[in-house]
Design a protein around this nucleic acid. Structure first.
Lengths: 202, 202
DNA sequence: GTCTATACCTAGATAGAC
DNA sequence: GTCTATCTAGGTATAGAC
């Protein structure tokens, strides 16, 4: 590892960053299936061997790409303040933000699902679960708990379960958007309305 | 179980079936990343060239695997009769069934997401959307509509949107189960409770 | 329809000059 | 730290005997 402490040695010439960017681009356009070190190097305008210098091997590179996106998971609920704005509007905005986030991360999530070796390498560090929604649940659940205190949300709501449902819907819409190259059927508003009012007859 | 319209020519010697089974097995265990015609042939106990004889090329094989699972999508809501049994119990059973279904299909869905070429081949036939939940929505929405008529479900419920949410939750749980090698946090019951009662304070 | 054998290519990875 | 050059294994796909 050359860089744990960050910028201890030589100044970066941007190769590492270019490689990461190219990897993400290919992942988004073509998926892991077509992700080769050769094409990454070509697109990054970099020697193929530089990839191995920086990341050790192909999987190390994939790991780095995944790691790059994990911290951003917690930003999804930023700007949401319980009590401010309408509950429905807040949820629609949250859901839209989540869908956009998942649309960016979906190719990477798909890569992890499609590559057992990559999955295994994360399991070794116990980081497999980090990819899941656990990181995302907390801030959303916190927001819902805030609204619950204010009485805008059912007093007996299981906020973690509700946050999971929101994440599930967002992920679904992002995946569908990628599969059919268009937005998923129905709007985010429809889903929010279902969630707000529930299924059971009142 | 000699299948439907085919069996016009020579009797099958089971090679085709063995190849499909081996492909699914590898897809489930390792993902597309490691899916090679060589390993498929090895596991199926078959000559590699037979794969190309039956399916043309690697993508043709993948297509066949996907096609194999599409018809089963509509069976997920079978056995659900509006009015029979408790609404909550029905939904829990439905969700559990959906999770099991998605757990089987998830590797294939991941493969499609991870391979742009495969995605494109389905887009050509307009079948890309078939992979999505559209097939699954109808029977679930029909069940919900039935319950709505009986007054056990909100009169103004958007049944399609609700069905989508159920599918989203099921897919999420299946994916999480694969990523962390254990059931997803919370039970299906928790999600159902959220969906039944909704978020908003009554 | 299924096999063996093989052609041909691209993959991931390393060595060593600068 | 980055490059050029190269090795080897494995990938998809085809030819032709049976």
């Amino acid at each position: 590892m050359t860089d744990a402490g960050r910028r201890r040695g030589r100044p970066s010439t941007g190769v590492r960053e270019a490689v990461l960017a190219a990897t993400e681009a290919i992942l988004g356009e073509s998926g892991v299936a077509r992700l080769s070190t050769k094409e990454i190097a070509r697109r990054a305008g970099v020697a193929e061997s530089s990839i191995f210098y920086h990341f050790g091997d192909r999987l190390g590179l994939l790991q780095a790409v995944v790691a790059l996106h994990l911290p951003r998971f917690k930003d999804v609920a930023d700007g949401l303040v319980p009590g401010e704005g309408g509950l429905r509007a807040n949820l629609v905005a949250l859901l839209d933000g989540l869908v956009a986030f998942y649309a960016r991360v979906a190719p990477i999530l798909a890569a992890v699902q499609a590559d057992a070796e990559l999955r295994a390498r994360f399991a070794d560090r116990g980081a497999g679960e980090v990819i899941g929604p656990r990181r995302g649940v907390a801030p959303i659940a916190a927001y819902l708990a805030g609204e619950r205190e204010l009485g805008r949300v059912r007093a007996d709501l299981d906020v973690e379960a509700a946050a999971m449902v929101l994440l599930a819907v967002a992920h679904q819409r992002a995946v569908l958007g990628r599969l059919s190259d268009g937005p998923a059927p129905g709007g985010t508003g429809d889903a929010v309305d279902v969630l707000l009012a529930g299924l059971a007859a009142g």
